[in-house]
Amino acid sequence: MSGKRPSVAQKRLMKEYKQFISDPPQGISAGPADEDNFLLWECLIQGPDDTPYEGGLFPATLKFPQDYPLSPPVMKFTCEMYHPNIYKDGTVCISILHAPGDDPNMYESASERWSPIQSVDKILLSVMSMLAEPNDESGANIDASKMWRDDQEQFVKIVRGTVRKALGL
């Protein structure tokens, strides 16, 4: 023991990680960024098939608060992302990452919100389906939101550009 006992958050994240790798969801890779800090994870999400994100692999970070799982983590893509529900700095805006208390998005029903019974794999699966189906009620990226509504062709073109960029092509 290094003197400090692991916190509830740390212990829970170790268990989540162990379970995650014993049964990883298709197209998703995730784990602690380094062995000394379970509160920061790196993940990699495959772009879902039959969407403009197809073929892409998008790196992101999950930053867990000290009181996890009472509060949700913050997810941020570390590559350029063009999506109605992703802020320009990469931060993901999705209901599962909002606690039922904080309320920037009234349309989200409580059942879709963050609760300690959610988990990393559920978050990442939700983000994957968010890539496939943007939610046009929450515009984290207004430009992308408009483009997605009004000019699909251009939207797809921009997204394909980011897909290539994320892969360093």
């Binding site: 023991m1 290094s2 692991p6 000394d36």
Partner: peptide, 13 residues
């Protein structure tokens, strides 16, 4: 940065 050497497993990372 909390070190949890005895619990984590380098192989995982």
């Amino acid at each position: 940065k909390m070190t949890i050497k005895n619990i984590d497993d380098r192989q995982w990372v």
